[in-house]
Amino acid sequence: MAVMPDFLITKLDWVANLARANSLWPMPFATACCGIELMATASSRYDIARFGSEAMRFSPRQCDLMLVAGRVAMKMVPVLQRIWLQMPEPKWCISMGACASSGGVFDTYAVVQGIDRFLPVDVYVPGCPPRPEQLIRAVIDLQEKIQATGTVNAREFTDRTTYEGPTSMIKTLELDQTMVVPGDFNTATRQRD
């Protein structure tokens, strides 16, 4: 019988990734229908605890995975961005459902057409709403991504300094088209005098 050594030689990155990938703490940013499917994923039949992600923490300071479940309205974007900035690195984002990923059926004046215009998203989950199995698959995909690309001091994020989303739709309007809307005053949101 071979004697097992009482030590293990490996890369520090690999160990850190193993720990991070298997204890993702989600911040459930559940706004609409997908939030109920998220609850179903967490409850007894599907049981996301099997993948180490059952510790839903509603305080962003303790989380490393943001789960945006449901459509994000114009009024909600500043809240979403503030919560994202409050989460400590390393952090990841899953965009759950058609509405969060692309606006879905809600192509209206109030719904943003995909949160990737405002946040860096790692995994998209299609479906309206996605089945719990799909969400679990997304968590597994994210675990693989972390295991493959992660580093102990989050070096992989330092190069990603540019906007990665789809073409930005911010536009500057003519003075006579301007109106009072929330947001940055240098873009289409200039106040009419």
């Binding site: 114009m74 974007v77 500043p78 961005q81 994202w84 900035l85 989460m87 690195e89 952090k91 192509d107 209206t108 004046y109 109030a110 719904v111 943003v112 057409q113 215009r117 405002f118 946040l119 860096p120 994020f157 330092t158 990603r160 300094t161 540019t162 906007y163 990665e164 989303g165 930005s168 739709m169 911010i170 536009k171 309007l173 088209q177 109106m179 809307v181 929330p182 947001g183 940055d184 873009t187 289409a188 949101t189």
Partner: peptide
């Protein structure tokens, strides 16, 4: 007289990038 898809208000927020966090 207001269009269904709005007049562009819904996209007028500054995006966050990875380096922001």
């Amino acid at each position: 007289d207001y269009p269904l898809r709005g007049r562009g208000e819904r996209h007028n927020f500054e995006p966050n990038i990875r380096a922001d966090g």
